[in-house]
Structures are given as structure tokens and as C-alpha cells.
């Protein structure tokens, strides 16, 4: 008979953390609130997941490639402000495209810093985080822009098929598209090779620099999309719109199971992580928990999960595959002796 010890329970919780989190939220929500387990709640969770979801989606290929992008929040702020502030001059739709363009441009800057000037992505995007945030405050004078046409973007949060809204459809569609790219195409599979072992990827003839530049531009584009969607649906272009969303986005990706060490991850897992974190946020708001508390538990979840991942993952420098096979071998060994 199998004996359950704390270690195995811990392993199971870490491995199936998405389901554990969702189940815990559902049970606690159903227990504390009468009308929590409804389709309306699900719709609200998915709807609000869209903005942080685009940030997290952009971050997923970045982490798979073994990089990090800390500037996504600042890029989102710039894009959000541009989307609204340029409406009077350019019209609603062109301004939204400029917002996306701002995201792509910022991604190109990051890509140049990392690939051409060889600045580690951590430091490069830390600097562009500060530059982007300061730029947004400078351009806007610290004041949010209000849309002259507030009804234009409202459709993004309309009801769609009972549990969806147009912006959650966009997010889920983007996650599915990214899943097909990452898992179903040669270029997606090459990205995992880049993140698993860069020297091996180089000797396999993969254009490593091209892939790394590409994921930064994609991440900038996704952050731009998050900014455009957030700005249009709230009819406000805030120069600090994205500043508090970096940590929730990273946390959502990590909850999904994508590893900071590179070489592993999936956009569907990110979708799950975003929904799980969104469910937790919605639950706390329904229960009247102040937003500071959300910062505390988001930070706690992030630190706890990366610590557990690290302990489960073992030492630096080994590839995840060898570690995984080592872990499997160890488990079967233990299973045989106990």
C-alpha cells in the first residue's frame, strides 16, 4: 500500500497547482458567497483576465527562450496612453494601431539591447522599464487622457455567448494561436531548443539571435495589445496603466508551470494561470479584501512557486530534460524500495 508523506503531497500540489488553485477558489467561493459559482462570475473572471492575459502571453515565449522582459508593464502604459491621447487627431482605429505600433517599437528596442548590444535581458528590460515609465509620465504630464468617444471601446466588455466577452475571446484566441505555433510548427519547437541549451541550439544551426529578437518584439506587441484593450474598454489612457501588472503577469505565467530557467512552458498553461489568478482576485474582491492584500498574496504565491520549482528542479546548469529523467528514475527507485 502506498504511504502518503508530506513530500509526495507537496509534489502533487506543485505539479497540479493550477487545478488545486481553481478547486480551492471554487470551494472557498461557494462556501463564503451564495452567488459565486455562476456563469456570470466565470464571465467576469475571463473578461478581466484579458488584459493581464496578453501581458502573460507575451511573456511565455520570452521565458521559454530563457529570457525575461520586465518592461511589459511600462510598454502597456505607453500604448494605453497613445491609444486614447491620439484619438482626436487620428481617429479611433488608427490611434489603436499606433498603440500596437508603440508596443512593437518598444519590443524592437529591447531586442536591439539584448541581441545587438548584448545586455542581459534582465538588466536591459529593467532599464527600459524605467525609461518607458518615465516617458509615459513625461508625455502625459502625469495626467490620464479621457476618450472623447467613450462608447467606442465599450463593446469589448459586452456579453458574448453567456461566459465570454469580445476581449476574452481575443485573449483565448491568441492563447490558442500561440499554442499551435509553439507546439505545432518547427519554429515553435526551435524556441524550446534555444531556451533549453543555447550552445546546442547554435550547433544545431538554429538562428538563436533571430529567435530571441523575435520573442522580444512579440512580447512588445502583446504588451501593446494589453494596453490598447485596457485603454479602449475603460475609455481612459492612463500613463501608469501597466505599472502594477508586471508581477501579476509573471505570477500567472509561473502558476501555469512555465519555468524561469527556460526551455519549458506552454501558452495554454499561461491561459490557465491567468484564469486561476483572476479567479482568486475576483474571489477576494467579492469578499471585500483590500487590494493591498492582493499584492501580498500575489507576491507570496510567486515566491513560493519559484522556490518550489527551484527545489524540485535542482541545480543550475543542468537541462530540464536530464533533471526530469533523473527525477523519474529517483521516483521509480523510491517506489521500488518502499
Amino acid at each position: 500500500m502506498m504511504r502518503l508523506n508530506i513530500g509526495t503531497i507537496g509534489n502533487v500540489v506543485v505539479r497540479y497547482r493550477l487545478l488545486v488553485m481553481l478547486a480551492a477558489v471554487a470551494v472557498f467561493g461557494g462556501w463564503t458567497l451564495d452567488d459565486f459559482l455562476t456563469l456570470t462570475t466565470l464571465q467576469s473572471i475571463l473578461d478581466r483576465a484579458a488584459v493581464v492575459g496578453f501581458l502573460a502571453l507575451g511573456l511565455t515565449p520570452i521565458l521559454i527562450a530563457g529570457q525575461i522582459d520586465l518592461s511589459i508593464g511600462s510598454i502597456m502604459s505607453l500604448a494605453a496612453y497613445a491609444t486614447i491621447a491620439l484619438q482626436p487627431d487620428l481617429g479611433n482605429v488608427p490611434a489603436a494601431f499606433i498603440g500596437l505600433g508603440v508596443g512593437i517599437l518598444a519590443g524592437v528596442v529591447n531586442a536591439l539591447a539584448v541581441v545587438v548590444f548584448k545586455v542581459t535581458s534582465l538588466v536591459a528590460t529593467l532599464a527600459t522599464l524605467l525609461i518607458g515609465a518615465s516617458l509615459a509620465l513625461l508625455i502625459s504630464n502625469g495626467q490620464p487622457a479621457s476618450s472623447a468617444d467613450p462608447l467606442f471601446g465599450l463593446f469589448l466588455t459586452d456579453n458574448f455567448l453567456a461566459i465570454l466577452t469580445p476581449r476574452s475571446v481575443l485573449f483565448i484566441g491568441a492563447a490558442l494561436l500561440m499554442f499551435v505555433w509553439l507546439k505545432g510548427t518547427p519554429s515553435g519547437r526551435n524556441l524550446y531548443a534555444v531556451g533549453s541549451s543555447m550552445p546546442a541550439a547554435i550547433s544545431a544551426g538554429i538562428n538563436v539571435n533571430g529567435y530571441i529578437a523575435g520573442v522580444f518584439v512579440l512580447s512588445g506587441f502583446c504588451a501593446g495589445a494589453a494596453g490598447v484593450i485596457q485603454a479602449l474598454s475603460s475609455a481612459t489612457g492612463s500613463p501608469i496603466a501597466g505599472s502594477v501588472l508586471l508581477i501579476p503577469a509573471i505570477t500567472a505565467v509561473v502558476i501555469g508551470g512555465t519555468r524561469l530557467e527556460g526551455g519549458r512552458g506552454s501558452s495554454l498553461a499561461t491561459l490557465g494561470g491567468v484564469v486561476a489568478l483572476g479567479a482568486l482576485t475576483t474571489l477576494s474582491e467579492y469578499n471585500g479584501v483590500p487590494s493591498y492584500t492582493q499584492a501580498v498574496y500575489t507576491g507570496l504565491i510567486l515566491i513560493l512557486l519559484i522556490t518550489l520549482d527551484r527545489i524540485a528542479g535542482g541545480d543550475e546548469g543542468k537541462t530540464t530534460r536530464t533533471l526530469r529523467s533523473a527525477a523519474v528514475a529517483k521516483q521509480t527507485q523510491q517506489g521500488g524500495t518502499s
Binding site: 525575461i68 508586471l246 499584492a295 507576491g299 507570496l300
Partner: peptide
């Protein structure tokens, strides 16, 4: 960076 980003937020 990740640790101090998370602990700072917390």
C-alpha cells in the same frame, strides 16, 4: 531579480 521583484511587491 525575480526574488526581489516578488518580495518587494509583497
Amino acid at each position: 531579480i525575480i526574488v526581489t521583484l516578488g518580495s518587494g511587491f509583497l
